[in-house]
Design a protein around this nucleic acid. Structure first.
Lengths: 200, 200
DNA sequence: CGTTCTTTTGACCGTTTGGTCAAACCAAGA
DNA sequence: TCTTGGTTTGACCAAACGGTCAAAAGAACG
């Protein structure tokens, strides 16, 4: 029987995970130091290591928490729903994820850029299976004439690329747009784009 | 008068830059070590530092070389050309860049993820000016009814996102696609997408 | 051959890194 | 109040880090 966590434990573990997310999502695993995380969390380094046994443990905890919800928007794509509505709703959910959890998106991007050393088998198994399944649904819609014929895999890639871009390349987007807010325009643009592509 | 580089200098400098590109594009600046670069280049660490004075010098040289060509495809967008052809040609050029220089694309992605500490002012000045200029051209095309009305900034972002995705998220794309080659399908998909969006 | 200039290397240095540990601190209940 | 268990810390360690340097090795050319 595991002990229930005290209030202090909850607070400090949450602070460490948030600080770790800040730093890991910017600098990747190897570019991140425990001192950086400790300072961002407002703890001393030994105190940090009292809650997590190692740097890798913090990173793993973050990746696991991320993967729990990362695939949910795609899972929700329903074969029984209206095709164009299902797909534009998926785009909206993914864009909301980028807007509300940009650090998580960048953590994922960093992991992929490094060659996905921790989640490679998840990509090859869980992710591939899920995408194959949903791609089949999309292909079915196309075959039935409910949407324009498109390559379902590249359609899914395009949704990932377009939505995550606003989180991962946030600095560049803001440098170009200046004061203008990115996400309102993005939502409109993406809705327009996919309606035209799929043929509403 | 500067001395002409010897053959050995040319070979070793090229080897160092290529090795540095390999490592920096995977692990970012802070996550990369001189020993990693030295080993990948087949040189000892002191020998490496005989050709470049510091780790940062290698990184800077790579970023400068990258920026020299990075904006060229957008610069080539011609107001006098046929709008849809100009834009789809831009997409093709960017996609070719991702295919032929994926490490450079990942180096850029890493720099942006880290908050663009080295190129922030280039983004805010050179890049912003260039995008403003080309966005005005696109807006002009839309106003003249030559293409469907779209937000020109998000249109450009979408081209960046979609093309660079195949280089930056290469591991994920390949994990999902298996053996199938990504770039042929991508080229077809992107051509289809932008023709429909812009209304040919 | 000998000389000169370039290239390479082993040994080294100070700092940073991930991580340990014993001791001190502190909150809370008996 | 005292005790007990969770929490915090300063001091410390070995390894890895970016970088230096003098000396050795090698190329080039008369």
């Amino acid at each position: 029987m595991t002990k229930a966590p005290t209030r202090i434990q909850q607070r400090n573990q949450a602070a460490i995970l948030s600080a770790g997310l800040d730093v890991f999502s910017q600098y990747g695993f190897r570019g991140t130091t425990l001192d950086q995380i400790a300072e961002a969390a407002g703890l001393s380094k030994p105190n940090l290591l009292y809650y997590f046994p190692s740097k890798e443990a913090i990173h793993t905890a973050l990746l696991e928490r991320l993967l729990e919800n990362w695939l949910d928007p795609l899972k929700a794509l329903d074969a029984a729903g209206d095709p164009v509505q299902e797909l534009t709703a998926y785009v909206r959910r993914k864009l909301a994820l980028s807007k509300d959890f940009p650090r998580e998106s960048r953590l994922f991007a960093n992991e992929i850029l490094q060659g996905a050393p921790w989640i490679e088998d998840i990509l090859r198994n869980d992710l591939k299976r899920l995408v194959d399944e949903k791609a089949a649904i999309i292909q079915g819609w196309a075959d039935a004439g409910k949407i324009a014929p498109v390559d379902p895999y590249h359609l899914i890639f395009s949704i990932w690329a377009l939505t995550q871009h606003y989180a991962d390349f946030d600095v560049q987007v803001r440098a170009v747009l200046g004061d203008r807010a990115p996400y309102d325009g993005a939502a409109l643009f993406l809705d327009q784009l996919y309606r035209k592509l799929l043929g509403s």
